[in-house]
């Protein structure tokens, strides 16, 4: 997780006071994560980039209201959730004539999952450390591939070349990492966090 920059209180105060440089650091740290979050529900790159951009603009406007450094991420995800939901609901309204059962199920499932997220800063602090821990526990090669792919934003082909393995091996390792992370997160997250993150209707 060397890529992740830790924000100290001082930086956070500078951000709240309107320091554009710190805002840019925050942007660089989270932009791709917020895009990916939205993209996994709206399934449209253009829309998810817009959603992410709106989240940051809203964060900037409302920066004085954010109380803790961890609140930044919670704020970004909250806005991204609501914008993504708006888009999906709009899509649902406009696609009433679409009869493809799978598309409807998928759309409804995405709405349901998004609605169930309840981002609050305490959960995020916990989740962050849980994810870090879970990644640390991955087998070495698996962790290496996952980090390069997910946190350094490298394409599968690039990762394959860097580590001198096949693209299939990269894909297999990513799949393995997700599986292990899932098991770790579900089994070890404290009940209260689990409730917030995996709240199921």
């Amino acid at each position: 997780m060397t890529h992740q920059i830790e924000y100290d209180q001082q930086n956070f105060q500078r951000f709240k006071a309107g320091d554009e440089k710190v805002f840019e650091l925050i942007f660089r740290q989270y932009y791709n994560q917020i895009v990916a979050f939205s993209y996994s529900f709206v399934d449209d790159k253009y829309i998810s980039e817009n959603v992410s951009q709106e989240s940051f603009i809203n964060l900037w406007i409302n920066r004085r209201k954010v109380e803790k450094p961890a609140g930044i991420k919670a704020f970004l995800y909250t806005i991204a959730k609501s914008r993504s939901l708006n888009y999906l609901r709009e899509k649902k309204r406009h696609s009433l004539h679409v009869t493809n059962e799978t598309d409807i199920r998928e759309l409804e499932m995405n709405v349901k999952i998004l609605e169930s997220f309840n981002f609050n800063e305490y959960d995020f602090i916990e989740l962050e450390s849980m994810i870090k821990e879970a990644i640390e526990e991955l087998p070495e090669r698996c962790r290496e591939v996952y980090m390069k792919s997910r946190f350094e934003g490298k394409k599968n082909a690039e990762v394959a070349e860097e580590l001198n393995i096949s693209i299939q091996a990269v894909e297999a390792n990513i799949t393995r990492a997700i599986k292990k992370l899932r098991i770790h997160l579900v089994d070890y997250l404290p009940a209260v966090v689990l409730h917030a993150i995996f709240k199921i209707f």
Partner: peptide, 30 residues
């Protein structure tokens, strides 16, 4: 399914988003 999708949504990172272009847009509006 929901468990897996949630973990994935919260841990994935977009690898081909144009960050610099996005930053220019945000800067302009903010």
């Amino acid at each position: 399914f929901i468990r897996l999708k949630k973990v994935y949504a919260l841990t994935s990172v977009m690898d081909d988003a144009d960050e610099s272009k996005a930053w220019r847009k945000i800067k302009k509006r903010s």
